[in-house]
Design a binder for these strands. Structure first.
Length: 647
RNA sequence: GCUGACGUAGCUCAACUGGUAGAGCAGCUGAUUUGUAAUCAGCAGGUUAAGGGUUCGAGUCCCUUCGUCAGCUCCA
């Protein structure tokens, strides 16, 4: 391996360098500034250290701080610096994994006692010293014996080491006093990591396995620039400011009370109004699209769920059985339902169906109960009593594509056209624990794929993320501050029609098995409303706002006039209230703003005499408009009717 | 469910190393009649999450249970 190698750059140009040249040398051959900015390199699509020798012809791209790949490298190095500092302060700490993640990095440690906030401060300070020392990250390739020797005191690393195949290169990275078994790559030296922050510590199972020991994980984040780090910390604060649990209390939308139990939502009148509008939107829309509404019970004989296969497979998520109804045999038990599908299936199966009837689309906004682990509950976003905007479609094989296509269109109508939310799609394929044969899954996954492609939609793959009864398309919503949320799911199901022996008479007058689909556009009203609260920061568009107009008389003399106006608004279908409390106008305006009421209609003597109203728009400050009352009502009605997003 | 932190009035928070619960806002009453983000005064409000223990004495220390939070696992 002597002589020259040919390096192809991203612009297509080719440079000849001596064999064994490093990516740093490539960068230097291009320019000093690039060499100075270089963080790592992409060699044949794989990210390498700048200092790693290249022995063969290769395509090389120099990574600088403005690439996403470089940020991952930086964060990976940050994790090592974290571990370096922890090892110095806590020599007894055993190291686990320390990868970069989407919004930062973490490192797992096995330590005798958990880290305290004070520990984090000390660790962060020590990290700054490690950065100041600017230790180079040195890569070495070692054999298994050597690696075993080096990590003899780190059982977690040894465990990982033994999983590596014989054909895999074993590499270790050293920065100053710290050595880690690591695939790399890293920035050239610890001095490159200047802008970072440790965020919090929490327990995490080793290898993510709840049967194994709990390690202590420290999370942090890192950026190339001070501004980026500051912006991230601001974003985190902003997310806190929008917390739906806090806003839900302030705006009197909902509560969760110990007397009722965790994960069970009390929708107060204001929150219920939002739910009501969402139901109205989806029900109006699906009726136009050929769905039929149904209602089914909250509890059922548990036999139904054995037949559907939920029991015992889904039992960990179901509430325990209740005793039989009065006068029934004792061995008959009842369960609350965690899903609606078996009931909708029984409606389908309640009479003979013809191929001419299909597709049959049964919809129900229904409450179901799932016994989620207590530690997973989180405000409205993760609950035990769920309100699903559920529907099941029974159709022929040849109708699948069209049905999926229409569901994707409905999804777009609701999420994008109505709420202005961006979203992306994921095709989730067969999980390990599943019902049905691989052949059936092949057909099902293929059908979803074709529908997506027909809709010319781009989508990602979530391998193994499907439900146990079929593959699904998951919709990930993006909110106002860029966070992603699990919303809509569309699932194909070949299994339940089989279990319930569903049939329709074909044009050949022979029995056929229909295909079934499950879908929920909002997902659950709880999670969707929770997401909306954070998305809008509580400032709902007029059509969703629990209180659309608040009428404020300036003084006692206008109370009767204000009440009359409130009646006019209410008669026009506008949710209105009067704040005629014995407080200053300033006080009442402030209260209206804090409650995020979109419009305050101020009525003074002048307005009453002229038949006008002084309109204060939420968030617009002192700027106000004097409008004839008719005109104001027309404007609000218009915004409600079109479900306008502003104000 | 697991690890850790936490739980004081409706809300946000005080209360020295154990010494006998306090403030602002909200609420109620009254005065004030207000022109676009907090008028003034008075009153009321707590078995300190629940239960048990240590102590002369527990909001404070210990145990159990419940709940909340940060994560893990799981998930709409």
């Amino acid at each position: 391996m002597t002589g020259e190698i040919r390096i192809t750059l991203p612009d297509g140009s080719v440079r000849a360098l001596p064999a064994g040249a490093t990516a740093r040398a490539v960068a230097e051959s291009i320019g000093v500034r690039l060499a100075r900015d270089a963080v790592a390199a992409k060699v044949n699509g794989e990210i390498w250290d700048l200092s790693r020798p290249i022995h063969q012809d290769a395509a090389v791209e120099i990574l600088t701080p403005n690439s996403a790949d470089a940020l991952y490298v930086l964060r990976h190095s940050s994790a090592h610096i974290l571990a370096t500092a922890v090892r110095q302060l806590f020599p007894e700490a055993k190291i686990g994994f320390g990868p970069p993640i989407d919004d930062g990095f973490y490192y797992d440690f096995e330590v005798p006692r958990p880290f305290t906030p004070e520990d984090l401060e000390r660790i962060e300070q020590r990290m700054h010293e490690v950065v100041k020392a600017d230790y180079p990250f040195v890569r070495e390739e070692v054999d298994r014996q050597d690696a075993r020797r080096r990590f003899k005191d780190d059982p977690l690393k040894l465990e990982r080491l033994e999983e590596l195949g014989d054909d895999q290169i074993i590499s270790v990275y050293t920065d100053g006093p710290f050595v880690d078994l690591c695939r790399g790559p890293h920035v050239p030296g610890t001095g490159h990591v200047k802008h970072f922050k440790l965020l919090h510590a929490a327990g995490a199972y080793w290898r993510g396995d709840s049967r194994r020991q709990m390690l202590q994980r420290i999370y942090g984040t890192a950026y190339f620039s001070k501004d980026d780090l500051a912006a991230d910390l601001r974003r985190r604060e902003e997310a806190e400011r929008r917390d739906h649990r806090v806003l839900g209390k302030q705006l009197d939308l909902f509560s969760i009370q110990e007397d009722i139990g965790p994960g069970l939502i009390l929708w107060h009148p204001r929150g219920a109004t939002i739910q009501f509008e969402l139901r109205r939107l989806i029900e109006d829309e699906i009726l136009k699209r050929g769905y039929q509404l149904v209602y089914t019970p909250h509890v059922t004989r548990e036999q139904l769920f054995f037949r559907s296969g939920h029991l015992p497979l889904y039992e960990h998520n179901q509430y325990p059985a209740m005793a039989a109804g009065a006068g029934e045999a004792e061995d008959i038990r009842y369960r609350t339902k965690p899903m609606n599908c078996p009931m909708h299936i029984l409606i389908y199966a309640s009479r003979q169906r013809s191929y001419r009837d299909l597709p049959i689309r049964l919809a129900e906004v229904a409450n179901v109960y799932r016994n989620e682990l207590s530690g997973t509950l989180h405000g409205m976003l993760r609950v035990r009593g769920l309100t699903m905007d559920d529907a099941h479609i029974f159709c022929r094989e040849d109708q699948i594509e069209q049905e999926i296509f229409e569901m994707l269109d409905l999804t777009d109508f609701v999420l994008s056209q109505t709420f202005g939310l961006q979203y992306r799609l994921d095709l989730a394929t067969r999980p390990e624990k599943k019902l049905g044969s691989d052949e059936v899954w092949d057909v099902a996954e293929g059908a979803l794929k074709r529908a997506l492609e027909r809709g010319k939609l781009t989508y990602g793959l979530d391998v193994g993320g499907g439900a146990f009864y079929g593959p699904k398309i998951d919709v990930k919503l993006k909110d106002a501050i860029g966070r992603e949320w699990q919303g809509t799911t569309i699932q194909l199901d070949y299994e339940l029609p089989e279990r319930f022996q569903l049939e329709y008479a074909g044009s050949d007058n022979r029995p056929h098995r229909p295909v079934m689909m499950h879908r929920a556009i909002y997902g659950t009203l709880e999670r969707f409303v929770g997401m909306l609260i954070e998305h809008f920061a509580g400032a709902f568009p007029v059509w969703l706002a629990p209180e659309q107009v608040r009428v404020l008389p300036i003084a006692e003399a206008q109370i009767a006039g204000a009440r009359a106006m409130h009646e006019r608004l209410r008669a026009a279908g506008i949710r209105s209230s009067v704040d005629d409390r014995n407080d200053t106008l300033n006080y009442r305006v402030r209260d209206g703003e804090l409650m995020k009421v979109p419009y305050m209609a101020v009525v003074g003597q002048r307005e009453l005499e002229q038949g006008t109203v002084a309109v204060r728009v939420r968030g617009a400050g002192k700027k106000q408009e004097i409008l004839p009352v008719d005109q104001f009502i027309a404007r609000v009605k218009g915004e409600i009717a079109t479900r306008a997003l502003a104000p």
